[in-house]
Amino acid sequence: MIYSGAPAAPRVFDSVLRGLLASPDAVTYRPRMKAEPDRETARESIIEFRNVGYRLPNGQPLLEGLNLAVGRGETLVLLGRSGAGKTTALKLINRLLNPSGGEILVEGKSTCSWDAIALRRHIGYVIQEIGLFPHFTIEQNVSLVPRLERWPVDRTSARVNELLNLMRLDPAKFSKRYPHELSGGQRQRVGIARALAVDPPILLMDEPFGALDPLTRGELHKEFRQLQRRLEKTIVIVTHDVGESLLLSTRIALLDAGKLTGVFSVKEFLAAREPVAAAYVANFRMYEEAERTNEPD
């Protein structure tokens, strides 16, 4: 079992698959989700890509004709291979990159008409390498954005305590420590706490659990699911991990070579006929089957 840290995922997979096989009409692949007002996009969309393209200065396209809407409160996973344009799409949302074509709306307003600094402080950002400031204590790291926003000191420190508790880190024990004194999982918790500091309505996560060992990743996945329910944030997660996508997402947007291949619910994804999605599912399935095929006769 590869996903020993996330035991829920394969089980979800199995039951869903069985259900689908029983009703063949449920297997519907819809390649273009752009204008489809299904139950998810029917919500008010808080992030919207409108025909967005991004090219490198040398003209190489990384992202082409992306149309995608993220509804308020949903968790959208951007799934794809390395180089598929997932991280590019994510960085376009908080304007770490500017689109070469089209526009991205955040809360109905084009990112280009947002003040870049205000936009970024409005959006939590978590990256795989975490990027905690090594010369700041945990407390200083978490309180960074509140301090930039000139919150009063007592409100800031109350918020830091609240967030560390939320991320199951004892403030008395951790707030005065430096990042290098923490384990990888603890550092990633601090990274998430830092991103949540000013309670932004949107959270962007770029392979947030990628660098963790499977058990730690599983624990964080479990906690993160509880967190999702409590916080009701709009979350966009970049990952190439199918298990993580199935576990955490409300919808999966599949990117391949800079283009959106489709947007799927977990159920739709598992049954998809679209080749890339099917390849992902088959690959994921392989690990499950290994359990049976590797048993000695």
């Binding site: 908080n94 770490l96 870049a116 600094i117 205000a118 936009l119 970024r120 402080r121 950002y125 990256i127 390498e129 975490i130 990027g131 905690l132 400031f133 090594p134 010369h135 960074l144 954005v145 930039l148 990274g191 830092r194 991103a195 962007l204």
Partner: peptide, 27 residues
């Protein structure tokens, strides 16, 4: 200075000057 640290700083909405004086120079 670690590229991830700089990216996190930008992503959290620090201005160029804040990145310079609070992150890059101290490090």
């Amino acid at each position: 200075v670690d590229a991830a640290v700089r990216e996190a700083a930008r992503g959290m909405g620090m201005t160029e000057n804040q990145i310079l004086f609070q992150v890059e120079l101290p490090l």
